[in-house]
Simulated assay, not measured.
Amino acid sequence: MIRPQPYAPALVFLAGLALLAPTAQAVEYSQVQPAASKLEFTFKQMGVPVPGHFKRFDARLRFDPARPEQASASFSVDLASIDAGSPEANAEVAGKQWFDLPQFGSARFVSSQVRPLGGQRYEVRGTLNLKGQTREVVATFQVKEEAGRAVFTATLPLKRLEFGVGAGPWGDTSIVADQVDVRLQLLATPGK
């Protein structure tokens, strides 16, 4: 007669958990929470950092931490919702030399590739359409998962002159630097 080992029930329990583990880990974040998300930027004017943000943008996201290469993202920004620090600055950037809002009211990014970098860091490539110019851009982002949700923080350095933003006298990079650092923070929950 074979006697059951005292640890046999524990082994059966652990084997059951191992079978369930892939299902428990499968989470795809796709529900962006706009009220808890933000799109900010910083540029330098005469060497001094100037912050700003956009009040309205739409983000679409599909991200499974177990399969990051299959992730996709798209963003559409209402350029008229800019807050560049003052009503005067907002009026200036609406003009033809900057965003030319009557002709180009939005900017759009669509991802084409996501690559893991390690340590919850990723690289995303895609195309950005801004002021009628389409360019490939590369951003990095981090993901922090907690309490059934994820916070995505992305940084994207842009050269504004590549998109024709800040033409004429504003093309002088000693007044306004060419580089604009864009920072996006999204709060997302799993899809239903």
Rank of each mutant, 00 (worst) to 15 (best):
L186C: 12
G118K: 05
R108E: 07
Q5F: 06
V137D: 09
T127N: 13
R62F: 02
L158Y: 06
I175V: 15
A71G: 13
Q142R: 09
P4N: 07
K44V: 02
A154H: 03
F63R: 06
V138D: 02
E40S: 12
W170N: 03
L20D: 12
P68L: 15
T140Y: 00
N90E: 05
F104D: 09
E69N: 05
D83I: 02
G164P: 04
F99I: 02
S174E: 15
A89C: 01
A94R: 10
T155C: 00
A80N: 06
G16T: 04
P22T: 06
L17V: 08
D172G: 08
G16S: 06
L14R: 00
S86D: 08
A36Y: 07
P34F: 15
Y29A: 13
G191D: 10
V32Y: 12
A24R: 06
V138H: 06
V143H: 03
F99Y: 07
V151I: 08
Q25T: 13
L61S: 08
P169H: 14
P87H: 13
E88N: 07
V77D: 03
P22S: 05
G191Y: 11
G191S: 14
R183Q: 11
A139G: 11
A66H: 01
E92R: 14
D58W: 13
D172H: 00
P49F: 02
G52R: 06
E136L: 06
L186M: 13
A167T: 10
A73Y: 09
S76N: 02
